[in-house]
């Protein structure tokens, strides 16, 4: 019994040892197997993730490519390509005419236009300034004065700030043939392409004192700005002047815009 018991114990012990060894062996094997499986799973997951990221990247790329193909704007500017210049300027073609005006008590009116733009703007073609004929009211159209004075310009720029303005200076000719200032006015060129009418309100500076007004009346000269173009195109330094409104002028603009969508701006409503 004891032997048997001993044997059994021994066998048991042996079995235990064996089991232990086997367990150790099998544990080892099982662990390796499990680790390889985990590795395979990780690789699979990695592959799946890589595919997904690749898909995302492809999607983004394709959407960006699509956007580039459909249109270019903002920072999608094509840089260093042979087809287009880097930071290519946009162009604005303005034509139109100063149609007519109505200024209260004045007759024999002449208008001088000046186009003023910012530092980044260049005039490619056309006259920056021009002086129209002297025009008198007729018997039939007793109110308005017609000039029908055309202008045509082409601008190019790389920056929107300093959008060009039209500055008008009106003079009239009195009984003695003297010219005197009777109005100033400004208007921006329309930013929307197409044809536009603009009604431009005209004003006239008032003398700073009554004495100079009386002298001016004798001399046949109203008060006038020394540098009207500089003063009217900017919005600084005008606080000190006093003006009175005198009339309205009608101007017709035709605006064409080129390359502005490449710059990132879509002034037209699609």
């Amino acid at each position: 019994m004891a032997d048997y018991n001993q044997d059994g114990e021994q066998e048991f012990q042996f079995q235990q040892e064996n089991d232990g060894v086997n367990n150790q062996f099998f544990d080892h094997g099982l662990g390796n197997f499990e680790k390889t499986r985990e590795r395979e799973q990780e690789e699979l997951e990695r592959q799946i993730r890589a595919e997904q990221t690749q898909k995302q990247v492809d999607y983004h790329k394709s959407s960006q490519e699509m956007r580039d193909k459909t249109r270019t704007g903002g920072n999608y500017l094509p840089i260093k390509t042979n087809l287009k210049q880097a930071y290519s300027p946009f162009h604005i073609f303005v034509s139109g005419h100063i149609e007519s005006g109505q200024i209260n008590d004045y007759d024999g009116l002449c208008c001088k236009y000046d186009f003023v733009a910012g530092t980044d703007w260049q005039i490619i073609d056309g006259n920056r300034s021009g002086v129209s004929q002297h025009s008198y009211k007729s018997q039939q159209t007793n109110r308005r004065v017609v000039w029908n004075y055309p202008f045509e310009l082409a601008f190019s720029s790389t920056n929107v700030t300093g959008w060009p303005q039209l500055v008008l200076t009106m003079t009239n000719r009195d009984f003695f043939g003297r010219d005197q200032i009777c109005g100033y006015g400004t208007v921006h060129i329309p930013t929307q392409p197409g044809s536009h009418y603009r009604y431009l309100n005209v004003f006239q500076p008032i003398s700073s004192s009554l004495l100079s007004q009386v002298f001016g009346w004798f001399k046949g000269k109203n008060a006038e700005f020394i540098n009207p173009i500089e003063l009217l195109s900017k919005n600084e330094g005008r606080e000190v002047t006093r003006v009175i409104s005198t009339g309205v002028i009608k101007i017709q603009f035709h605006v064409t815009v080129k390359n502005m969508d490449e710059y990132g701006i879509f002034p037209f409503k699609a």
């Binding site: 303005q165 006015g185 004003f203 006093r242 009175i244």
Partner: peptide
């Protein structure tokens, strides 16, 4: 600038 009205009571500022 300081503006004085015309006959219709319109004050022109024309301030860009």
């Amino acid at each position: 600038h300081t503006s004085y009205p015309d006959d219709e009571g319109f004050f022109v500022f024309a301030h860009p």
